[in-house]
Design a protein around this nucleic acid. Structure first.
Length: 327
DNA sequence: AATGACTCCAACCGCTCGAAA
DNA sequence: GTTTCGAGCGGTTGGAGTCAT
């Protein structure tokens, strides 16, 4: 790492010679006082650096690397119980150092839990994980949120309450913030025009909008991506899009500069098909099915999706933050 | 092959705590 | 009771290695 020396004391990686000096000294005299050790051992290091080197790497019997599945499970369980108390966790894993466990946690286990939708800090399911990992089929269920805000639709006949709009805006911002794979041009907030435009799309209005088909696949998991795409409509040509159920809806627009696979305009790239306000008769779309089974079904009494979502959030994790967002 | 982005992890930094003076 | 000092702990840094473009 070669950090710059300070006060004439060497920092950075230890050389073989330094390790040898430290090992020989401790084997001969024991650890003793770490402050005086470097001088007596002939090392141009601070005592702290010597102690760390010895404790984490040179000390006999240290086991390094090669964490087993059992180790992982142990560390995860202990972390759930103890939090970031690495020394206490290390005490349960013989021959492992706290520093190594900490590094292993930060570089592997933490990510592993996140991939499973578990908050590595609380070890509880991430409330919005289902939204984060929506499959394409799940996407249109989320689009029900837009339907709830309806009618935003035709002729700018905007009737949704300001309260709902605020909720929606917050939700969308949240999803943008947590979007694991944001598209480069997906930035900023959605304005009212976006919402209106969006609703027109979802409700089958004859609206042009732009989707780079090669990027469409990666964006399907995040409905908040749609809005900024709408802003590109002026430069595009209109195409229809065939949904999985055969229904034609407007867009996306092909960029002629992009080689488009032959299947680009089939269901793989389709936006969600339109949804109905009468769930009982229209849950033919798997997306809606997801919505109704995963969210609405959880809260049959709820009058709208926000209420249903709130219920879901309450069930999954009692986060006041989400409750605040969802009102 | 070159370059940039990303990941890993050894080592450092700053803080806290407890013991000794 | 206060100060000092050594040790330990957890968070962070940044160089090296790897991967993707």
């Amino acid at each position: 790492m070669a950090r710059s020396p300070e006060n004439g004391v060497k920092k950075g990686p230890w050389s073989i010679e330094e390790d040898k000096k430290l090992i020989e000294y401790i084997e001969k005299h024991g650890q003793g006082n770490w402050q005086t050790l470097p001088k007596q051992a002939g090392l141009n290091r601070c005592g702290k650096s010597c102690r760390l080197r010895w404790t984490n790497y040179l000390r006999p019997g240290i086991k390094r690397g090669g964490f087993s599945a059992e180790d992982e499970a142990t560390i995860t369980a202990l972390h759930k119980q103890l939090g970031n108390k690495w020394s206490r966790i290390a005490a349960h894993l013989p021959r492992r150092t706290d520093n190594e466990i900490k590094n292993f946690w930060n570089t592997h286990l933490k990510k592993k839990l996140l991939r499973k939708g578990i908050d590595p800090t609380t070890h509880k399911p991430i409330p919005d994980f289902n939204l984060l990992n929506l499959s394409q089929t799940q996407l249109s269920s989320v689009s029900n949120l837009y339907n709830v805000i309806s009618p935003l639709d035709t002729a700018l006949n905007f009737q949704a309450s300001a309260n709902d709009l605020i909720k929606f805006q917050l939700l969308q911002n949240m999803m943008q913030a947590i979007n694991p794979n944001p598209l480069p041009y997906v930035q900023g907030n959605t304005n009212l025009a976006d919402l209106i435009q969006l609703n027109r799309i979802f409700n089958g209005a004859n609206t042009d909008f732009t989707v780079d088909p090669l990027q469409a696949q990666s964006m399907t998991a995040n409905f908040c991506n749609i809005s900024p795409l709408l802003n590109q409509q002026q430069t595009s040509t209109s195409h229809s899009l065939q949904c999985s159920d055969g229904e034609m809806i407007p867009g996306p627009i092909r960029d002629d500069n992009v080689k488009v696979p032959s299947n680009v305009y089939n269901s793989e790239y389709s936006l969600p098909s339109l949804f109905s306000a009468t769930p009982e008769s229209s849950v033919v779309n798997p997306l809606e099915n997801f919505m109704h089974t995963s969210i609405l079904a959880e809260a049959p009494e709820q009058s709208n999706v926000f209420d249903a979502l709130e219920s879901l959030v309450d069930d999954e994790a009692s986060s006041s933050f989400w409750k605040d967002i969802l009102g």
